[in-house]
Each structure stands twice: as C-alpha cells, then as structure tokens.
C-alpha cells in the first residue's frame, strides 16, 4: 500500500479560506442560509468552515446542522457490512432556506442523492447547494456536481482519498491511498 499527499496542511488552510469567501460572496450575512454537514465525515469540514466564517470573517448568525443519511442510502442489505448510523442534529427548519450541503469527498454522488431525499424530512428548502473539499472527477454514478469545490482530483476506483483533521488525527492532511 502506498500513499501520496494530495493536500498539505497549508494548502487545506488556504482552500478553507477560499471556500469561506466563496460562501460569503453568495450568501452574504447567512440570514436565509443554513449549513448542513453530511455525517459522518462532512461534519468535521462543516465545523471547521463554520469556525473560519465566525472567527476570521466575523459572520455571526450561522446555522449549522448535521444530517445522517444512513436510512436513505440505496445500498441497504447490499454490502457485506451493516450500515452504521450517526446522529442527525438539525435544530431549525429548512423550509424556504438556502441549504448548503458540506461533505469532504464527492465520489459516486450516491451519498448526496440520499442527502437530497433525507433533507426533505425537515421541510422544503428554497434551494440546495453542494460544497465538497475533494471532487473525484470521472467517478460519478449520478448527475451531481459541486457548487463549491476545494480541489478536483483524478483518482481511479481502486484508490482511496483519506481526509485527516487536526481535531481527530493530529494533523490536517489529505492522502491519496493506492493498494
């Protein structure tokens, strides 16, 4: 097994700030916008982006929630392992809001398809956007593309993108792992 660094800590730092600026450009004061981290891994990116928006760009009233998509996935009973559920925490209504889905890696698009169904249980959003830190080009199973992307990468199916965060793994780094 070999792995190479896709993004270093410094590059992640720059990209997070760019993504934050792009969000501000489109959503200004975030009055009518809610951010939704897709569980399990999108949560960390959403938390980090939220912190950058609050602390570095002084955006005040950001509403942040986490959406678990386990029960909406299309591969229930199809894999070898049981699907593991995570906590959904959305303490606000998404009715008529602009929703931004936040996930670390966009791969087949199936998770986002599930998230699009899942979010409807919380109301009818005015519109939904997608922010992904890593966009794996050429691997989509569905017609889903991000509105905000950190870095686009070409990776073959056997390769895996591993996103690590300082809060959990001790450093911010993204690897491309191949067997």
């Amino acid at each position: 097994m070999s792995q190479k660094v896709l993004l270093s800590s410094k590059e992640i730092h720059i990209i997070l700030h760019r993504l934050a600026c792009q969000l501000i450009e489109n959503h200004l004061d975030f009055k009518n916008t809610v951010l939704i981290g897709i569980q399990p891994r999108g949560k960390y990116l959403a938390d980090r982006l939220c912190r950058v928006l609050r602390e570095e760009y002084h955006v005040k009233d950001i509403q942040l929630g986490y959406l678990d998509i386990t029960f909406y996935r299309d591969d229930f009973r199809r894999g070898d392992k049981p699907l593991e559920a995570n906590k959904t925490q959305i303490d606000f209504l998404v009715e008529d809001k602009k929703v931004v889905f936040i996930d670390d890696v966009l791969y087949t698009g199936r998770s986002i398809r599930a998230a699009l169904t899942a979010i409807q249980s919380f109301g009818r959003p005015a519109e939904i956007e997608l922010l992904a830190l890593i966009d794996r080009r050429f691997s989509r199973h569905l017609p889903i593309q991000p509105d905000y992307r950190g870095r686009q990468v070409d990776a073959i199916n056997e390769e895996k993108v591993k996103v690590m965060w300082k809060e959990n793994e001790g450093e911010d780094v993204i690897y491309l792992v191949s067997n």
């Binding site: 909406y72 229930f76 169904t117 249980s121 919380f122």
Partner: peptide, 23 residues
C-alpha cells in the same frame, strides 16, 4: 438501544418516515 436513539429522532421530525425497508 443505539439504533433506537436514531429512530427516535426520526419519528420526531416533521416527516417521520425513512425509505430503508422499501424492498
């Protein structure tokens, strides 16, 4: 119990249904 925690959250949503067992 842990799985029920997740479903308890689901049944308190405005739409209380998930599509897991449609087949």
């Amino acid at each position: 119990f842990e799985t029920a925690d997740h479903f308890k959250e689901v049944i308190n949503r405005p739409i209380k249904k998930v599509p897991s067992l449609r087949d």
